[in-house]
Computed example of a mutant assay.
Amino acid sequence: MFSVAETTPEKITQMVAAILLFVAIMGIVLFLAGLVKGRNGDRVVAYTYLAPSVLMLLVGLIYPGLRTIWQSFFDAAGNAFIGLDNYVTIFSDADQINVLRNTVFWVVVTPFVATAVGLIYAILVDKAKLESVAKALIFLPMAISFVGASIIWRFIYEYRPDQGNVKQIGLLNQLVVMLGGKPQQWLVDSPLNTFLLIVVMIWIQAGFAMTLLSAAIKAIPDDVIEAARLDGVSPFGMFRFITLPSIRPAVVVVLTTIGISTLKVFDIVRTMTGGNFDTSVIANEFYSQSFRSDNQGLGAALAVLLFILVIPVVVYNIRQMRASEAR
């Protein structure tokens, strides 16, 4: 067995050699493309630049995607063709139905609540004296990884048995004890634990929503706002008839973007509960079936289902962005 000291120089050498080989090949290809003259010269150069990206998409995205779809029609070992049985299992097995239910909870609650929190916050701090500080406070969670945020919230939900003089280190349970209640195992009881995990995602994404919506609010023309105020429009009417219609494209983009992130949520569930206590979602279940239960067929089917669910949201998001740019 080689030691780390022995293998590290060899790995570095291989890495440098691979990089130099890639640079040399690309240099030769681009040099040959540059020799092409005439009407088709620019087209050849353009295709030459695009070729590496297309190749990487084929190798790193399209081929694995098609391979995953094909694998979803096979059994756990990937040997016997079983057709749509894996998909039937997803929509009939009790555990898998629970996974779908949790995913629906995440997708329905997280985007709307996070967007609402970000929008309300953006309106409240708009043109305030300490606006930049207030925005920085809610945006800070965006700088934390999902795993880091999950660890923070695990401490908040931490539980210790209520025995003698045992002190609670979890913030939530400590507040409960201070108010005369008994500490609870928050991450054990379903479906409450799922909504407590959703809180973590909302905490992270609210800053993203606030940033985009605040920029959209500031882009509303001042003359429109002044005209509404001269007409005696109330604050609620200002929000309903001026602010919300003006920032509608930004709201749609925020909702769909957070929705896509929510569909793919994995880190929070994996870090906080590991998918136990009926908290698993599609992305986590895909990982568990593929790499822990060694059920390649069901894992692939879950990955395909996740892909199918994400595509319409992405398409709608792109169309809305194009529509807003065309206005």
Rank of each mutant, 00 (worst) to 15 (best):
I90S: 06
L197N: 12
L179M: 14
A134G: 02
F307L: 15
L100I: 15
R327Q: 12
L298A: 09
V281F: 08
T273D: 01
F277G: 00
M15G: 10
L244N: 07
R240G: 05
G83R: 03
S234F: 07
P221L: 12
T7G: 04
K11I: 12
A18H: 04
R240E: 03
P249H: 06
T68A: 14
K127P: 00
S324K: 08
A215P: 02
D42K: 06
R160V: 11
L309I: 10
T279S: 15
A206G: 01
V54E: 00
A94W: 00
F112D: 06
S214F: 10
D162I: 07
K264R: 14
Q185M: 13
K11A: 15
L84A: 09
Q205A: 10
I202Q: 08
R319D: 11
V200W: 05
T211N: 13
Q71H: 02
L192V: 15
A76L: 07
F91M: 13
R39N: 01
L263S: 09
L213V: 05
V133D: 04
V36F: 08
I90R: 08
G118M: 01
G148P: 07
I311R: 08
G27S: 13
V253W: 00
A122C: 12
D42R: 02
D223S: 15
G275L: 09
Q96H: 15
G164R: 00
M272N: 11
G38Q: 11
Q71W: 03
F307P: 01
L30S: 08
T279N: 07
L244D: 04
N165R: 00
A134F: 10
Y121C: 05
I225G: 02
P191F: 11
